[in-house]
Each structure stands twice: as structure tokens, then as C-alpha cells.
Write a protein that binds this DNA or RNA. Structure first.
Length: 565
RNA sequence: GCGCCCGUAGCUCAAUUGGAUAGAGUGUCUGGCUACGGACCAGAAGGUUAGGGGUUCAAAUCCUCUCGGGCGCGCCA
């Protein structure tokens, strides 16, 4: 839809409204706006607004009366491209547009191609999105896979809206879990050397620890079979470095690239964590109690205060993380987006409190909770525990169902819905995964382009002479164009709500309209005609536009648009 | 006990953030290419949107209570 026209009509409605009630002693609400929807029912026009119902009371008129008056007024102002504007139902204002308005959509798509939906609503805003951030204590699981897919898609969507986007992985590479990891490896390794080292009570039991031990032994023999603090440190480094390499490889193969891996260990050595504590101290937001240092997070809405420094002198988990968030803001990012698992949702108020306490707006931090992907094998729920070594790795899922299908599966659902991922089903019926429905559309259109070449001896060139598109007179064609025209706002909405699944919903609708059009009565609707006439050229322009939108939409999700399948 | 999320067709999920007749896929049933890709299409059946109450022109959506499910509530990470 030509945005300009939409705004012109909205402007006309507003000025009519003002004129109508201006003379009377009515209160015009401070913020009034005209919001258009695209109605589901085509009898309700091309655009519709609830404006009259929303502001009827302030105009002291009935919604029906107001809608009628506004329609009369706007109709008389002679807007080019506006065919009809009429009141309907309880007070809707329905807008019908001239056909040429729709043809222009096709021209615009063919002209801008994959940039059709690019907007600048977010121009100049620096956004950092932190996601996956799995501890380097084991391979990535399916839960991480969902986060990786969602985070990457969000980054793409925000970039499409004009934001400057930075992807970061917060690497929890120090602390207790790493220590346990190192000792787990140490124990397994010592066994290979024919010696003993106690396996930690809550050690990591996955077979990958055995693999690492074997690898170490084959590389270094019994070189580290002594028992010392230094050796423990070596084991920690060896294990986490190797595991991090696996993680990076998995992510790369999953088409997820990070701008940086932010090492908590290195960060903790910069003194910035102490600085953050001092900053809060200076503001009088920390206090000492029972030998520990507490953050007065209740002041900013948390339900209890939090310990930052234990009586042992160690930091708690949140302390470096608070400093890390300050660091992100200090690096000049306007918006911090964190993707967390549901087990961390209780953590939101304290981090928001910390952001505010350090002098930033709470709105700077947006936390998206990604509900778990629960794995099923048939009807059996698989318990997932990295430490117990019971998990299905992202790698396995990728290998079984393919990257595109796996990513799409993760992105189809609203992130705050649980995802039931039945492995058997996903493996066995991968060809029925909805992603193929979308990709098939693209492949089919590519095939039509090939057919065109075969028939007329040259490629279809999407340069459209004025007037040719007037051949697109069928209702089905208009519906397709209308759907194409809302792609930019669908992308916009998905970005602003941080909900990539909306792209899936949109693409499914578009693909469905296309397939339906394709299968219509073949004499009337055949795209490639006998001759290279205007109808053929017009329809080729239309399906080319569909192809571009499908590829762009899949691109926003980080999924390929194959030419053949 | 308190907090957050969820509850929509047999199953898995949507629903343009409060809009007009709640939609797809899957499963079941019936049809459709000598033509541009049948990984597709057309049609049927399937609903008291967990339940009660409230707010208004309008509620799956907002408020409230009840029931049911998930997850949190540490000087763990």
C-alpha cells in the first residue's frame, strides 16, 4: 500500500473530524490518530478504521452518525486514488482504493526488490542483542537452538527496521560450574592414566567428557597426571576451550554468527565489576548486612534486596552481570535485548532495578523469555540435563531435519508458548514441515521463470511498461497484491513486538494465496500464455513480486529460498 | 503461600494488540493435472476461546475470582 496515500486519507479524516466538532464545545482528545487495518472481509474495503467509534463520545455523537459525516466530508475532498469511502456496521469507516494504487505496489516491489520492506523507523538506534550465552560446559541443546534461531531472526528484523544491530554471546567462563567441569574432566583423564582423582558429586556425566579425556590423553599422554591446583586450572581451560569450539561450529552451521563472544573471565579482570559496585555504593544503594554486601533493589521495584558480595568475599552470579549490562550501556547501545530461558524470568526485576540504579531508563532493557522446547520421542518426554548427560544436542537435530527446517520450527511459534518438538515426527515427516510449503512457492515460481525462457527464448525481464498491469483485473490477483502490500508493516510489527513468528504467519498466508491462484481455472488464470502478450507480462510481474517477497520473508528468518527442491 | 507465563477444533498452533462471520496445518471424509512443479489445490466435518462475574457500541484479547498446567521465589549458577 502506498504509505503516502494512507497518510493523506488519515489526514483528511482528522481534519474533517476537527472541522465537524470544532464549532461545538467539545473536547478534542490530546492524542488522536487514525489507525487503519486491512479487513479480512473484502466487502469491508481495502482499508478500514475504527476512528469514529473511538472518538464518537468526545464528539458527542453516535459512532454511526460521526462515521457518516466523516465519510461525506472526506469523499468531497477529491483525493486521487481514493475510489470510495463509506460508513459501515457500528461505525467503521471503510476505504476503497482505485486499482492503480495496487499496480503501483507491484512496480515498487520489482524496483526495490529485497529492500521493499526495509524501513528506517529505527534509524540511528544502536541495539545489542544478547542470546544463547550457554555455559561452555557442554554442547548446545535444542533449548539453545530455539534461542539461537529467535535471537538471530530478531537481529535480522531489527536491522530491517534500520537499527544498528550487534549480536553478542555472554560467555560464562569462570566460576563454580567451570570448576566442576574441569574436575570432571580431570577425574576421567586420571582414570586413563591409571590414577585416581575424585569425580565431583555434581560433576558432568555426559559422554563428551570421556571423549575430551581421551583426546587429552592421546595428545599429552600422562603429562598432567600429577595433582595440583595448576592442573585443575589447566583442565578447566582445556575443557571449556574445546567445548566453546564445538559451540561456535554448531552456531556457524546453524547460520548464526555473533559479533562478539564476551568473556566474563576477562571482564572480571578489568576492574569494571568493582567499579559497578562502587557506583552503586556512591549512590547509597548498597549496604552491609551479615557480613555480605547487599544491593537495595527493592527501591526499584524488586521484591527483595539482593546480595552482591557474599560474606566469603566472592561475587554472586548477578554481580558481574550487572556490571556487564552497565558496560553494554557504556558502549553506547540505546537498547539492550536479552534472551533468557523461563528459569530466569524471576531475574528480570532485579536486572531492571540494576539498570535504573545505575542511572539508565528501565526501558533500555528488554528481556524476551524464550519458553523451553520440550523434546518428545513419540509420546515420551525426554528429560534434559546437561550435567546428567541426558540431552539431545542441537547438532543432532540439525543433522536429522536440516538447518532450514529446524530454524523454521523454532521460529513458527510465539516465543512464550512452549514448543513440543517431537523428534520422531520431525525426522520422519520432515518433508511435511511447513517450511517446505513456503519454499515450494519460491521454487515453483523459479520454475515458471525457467519455463518462460524455454517458451519465448529469453529470460523474463521485470521491467514493466505503464498500463500493462491493468491486465491484472481478477479478484485473486488483487488479493495477492494486497497481501504483498502489507509485508512491510508485517515486518515492522514483528520487529517492534520482538515476535518473529509473525513472519511465518504472514508467509503462510501469502503462499496459500499464491498456490490457490496458481491452481485456479487454468484457461482464465494461466500465467504464461501462448503469446508474450500484456496479460502474460502482467502476470509474470505479479508472480515475480511474490517470489521477491517470499525470499525476503525467509531471509528475515535466516532461511534459504531454494530455486529447486 | 507469593510472582511470572500458558489454557482456542481430536492434536500442534494463529488471530493485524479491543473490531465486523475466531482461522491455518495435521488427522478423518470426498474430489482435482494429456497444461506453469501433485512437497500443490477445491470441498466437508470439527468451537459455550478452561469456567463464573465485570468493563463498552464491540472481549479469545482488558479487570476480577475459580480450576488446570509450566517455571521461578538461595550469601546456587
Amino acid at each position: 500500500m502506498k504509505i503516502e496515500l494512507k497518510e493523506i486519507i488519515a489526514g483528511a479524516i482528522l481534519s474533517c473530524y476537527r472541522n465537524l466538532i470544532g464549532n461545538e464545545e467539545c473536547r478534542i482528545p490530546e492524542h488522536i490518530s487514525v489507525d487503519f487495518d486491512v479487513p479480512k472481509n473484502r466487502d469491508h474495503g481495502d482499508l478500514t478504521t475504527n476512528f469514529a467509534m473511538k472518538y464518537a463520545s468526545s464528539a458527542k455523537k453516535s459512532p454511526i452518525e460521526l462515521s457518516r459525516m466523516i465519510c461525506d466530508c472526506v469523499a468531497s475532498s477529491g483525493i486521487e486514488g481514493l475510489k470510495k469511502i463509506e460508513p459501515a456496521g457500528p461505525g467503521f469507516i471503510n476505504v476503497f482504493l482505485e486499482h492503480e494504487v495496487f499496480y503501483n505496489v507491484v512496480l515498487e516491489v520489482l524496483d526495490k526488490r529485497e529492500k521493499y520492506a526495509v524501513s528506517d523507523t529505527c534509524r540511528g538506534k544502536k541495539v545489542i542483542i544478547e542470546f544463547v550465552s550457554a555455559n561452555p560446559t557442554g554442547p548446545l541443546t535444542v533449548a539453545h537452538g530455539r534461542q539461537a534461531a529467535v535471537g538471530d531472526a530478531l537481529a535480522r528484523l531489527l536491522a530491517n527496521s534500520g537499527c544498528e544491530v550487534f549480536r553478542e554471546y555472554y560467555l560464562n567462563d569462570r566460576g563454580r560450574q567451570i570448576d566442576i567441569l574441569g574436575k570432571s574432566l580431570y577425574s576421567k583423564y586420571m582414570k586413563l592414566c591409571g590414577r585416581e582423582y575424585p569425580f565431583p558429586d555434581d560433576g558432568y556425566k555426559g559422554s563428551y567428557i570421556d571423549d575430551l579425556a581421551k583426546k587429552l590423553y592421546s595428545e599429552k599422554g600422562a603429562e598432567f597426571s600429577g595433582i595440583s591446583e595448576k592442573t585443575v586450572e589447566f583442565m578447566c581451560d582445556y575443557a571449556k576451550n574445546n567445548i566453546l569450539e564445538w559451540i561456535k561450529k554448531d552456531l556457524a552451521d546453524f547460520s548464526v554468527e555473533f559479533n562478539s563472544y564476551f568473556s566474563e573471565k576477562k571482564f572480571s579482570e578489568t576492574g569494571k565489576v568493582e567499579e559497578a559496585i562502587k557506583l552503586l555504593e556512591k549512590k547509597g544503594l548498597v549496604y552491609e548486612k551479615d557480613g555480605a554486601i547487599w544491593f537495595n533493589s527493592r527501591k526499584y521495584g524488586d521484591d527483595k534486596d539482593r546480595v552482591m558480595v557474599k560474606s566469603s568475599g566472592e561475587w554472586t552470579y548477578i554481580t558481574p552481570d550487572i556490571a556487564y549490562h552497565k558496560d553494554k550501556l557504556d558502549r553506547g547501545f540505546d537498547l539492550l535485548i536479552d534472551l533468557w530461558g523461563p528459569d530466569h524470568h524471576g531475574y528480570i526485576p532485579r536486572m531492571k532495578a540494576a539498570v535504573q540504579a545505575m542511572g539508565f531508563n528501565a526501558g533500555c532493557l528488554k528481556v524476551v523469555i524464550i519458553q523451553l522446547a520440550t523434546l518428545y520421542q513419540g509420546k515420551n518426554k525426554l528429560s534434559m540435563s546437561t550435567r546428567q548427560g541426558e540431552f539431545i544436542s542441537l547438532r543432532e537435530v540439525m543433522n536429522e531435519v536440516g538447518v532450514d527446517a529446524a530454524r523454521y520450527f523454532f521460529l513458527m511459534l510465539n516465543t512464550d508458548s512452549h514448543l513440543d518438538f517431537d523428534l520422531e515426527l520431525a525426522k520422519k515427516r520432515s518433508a511435511e514441515n511447513p517450511v517446505y510449503y513456503i519454499q515450494y512457492t519460491h521454487a515453483r515460481i523459479c520454475s515458471m521463470l525457467e519455463k518462460y525462457n524455454e517458451k519465448f527464448g529469453h529470460d523474463y525481464i521485470p521491467v514493466v511498461q505503464p498500463g500493462i498491469l491493468e491486465e491484472l483485473t481478477n479478484r485473486e490477483e488483487k488479493d495477492l497484491i494486497k497481501k504483498i502490500s502489507v509485508f512491510p508493516s508485517a515486518a515492522e510489527l514483528a520487529a517492534s513486538l520482538l515476535e518473529p513468528h509473525r513472519i511465518h504467519v504472514y508467509l503462510t498466508e501469502l503462499a496459500s494465496l499464491f498456490h490457490s491462484y496458481y491452481h485456479k481455472d487454468s484457461k482464465k488464470f494461466r500465467v504464461i500464455g501462448e503469446k508474450e502478450d500484456n496479460i502474460t507480462l502482467a502476470r509474470m510481474a505479479l508472480v515475480s513480486a511474490v517470489k521477491i517477497i517470499i525470499a525476503s520473508g525467509l531471509g528475515l528468518l535466516g532461511i534459504t529460498a531454494p530455486e529447486k527442491m
